[in-house]
Amino acid sequence: TLLLGAEPEKVCAMPDPALPDSDIKALTTLCDLADRELVLNISWAKHIPGFSSLSLSDQMSLLQSAWMEILVLRVAFRSLPCDDRLLFADDYIMDAEQAKCAGLLELHTAILQLVRRYRCMSLEREEFVTLKAIALANSDSMHIEDVEAVQGLQDALHEALLDYECVHHSEDPRRAGKLIMTLPLLRQTSAKAVRHFCSIKQDGRVPMHKLFLELLEANI
């Protein structure tokens, strides 16, 4: 219940109508959207029961490792009702052709693989919010100071997922495990996204806001 209540509001992409359609415009729109979502995701993290009890340093380490997984999982969940399209925002839905034009086809394909996996399972909102919190707590940062405290957070979230599945999906005792088994694909997809946006940053043709840049740099 607390995780459902902590879910951030929807964000609009608002592509700049003054810019002509181009790969730069698409990437500028996505980077701006990501930056605004990141601000919301940081305040979301603070509402995860137990997260704010971690040291500030460990909170930072978890977010620096998992920020892109959180963004990707949110896009994947939003895209569940869409056919082969990614719903980056209600006003920004991207098909393969548009992704290709923006140089994002590989990433688009990878995120859709994740969407299909969740669609097959009919991922529910309750499972999505819990899995997202698990991805954050389980981000495998190499800089964690209080490993036991982070383990405690992982255990509490894992327990919440098991409880939910026990009550709502007693017909499939392996459902929680199946959900956890999607996390490697999420990690892989997120790493792809970070690499791609790092190379866009190197090119220097797309304006990026400071928080997005700061977190991209944390992953280099």
């Binding site: 603070k46 500030l56 930072m60 977010l63 800089h143 928080l211």
Partner: peptide, 15 residues
């Protein structure tokens, strides 16, 4: 970590 000023500030803000 000193470089991550915005993340640090956002985490320290209440809300």
């Amino acid at each position: 970590k000193e470089k991550h000023k915005i993340l640090h500030r956002l985490l320290q803000n209440s809300s």
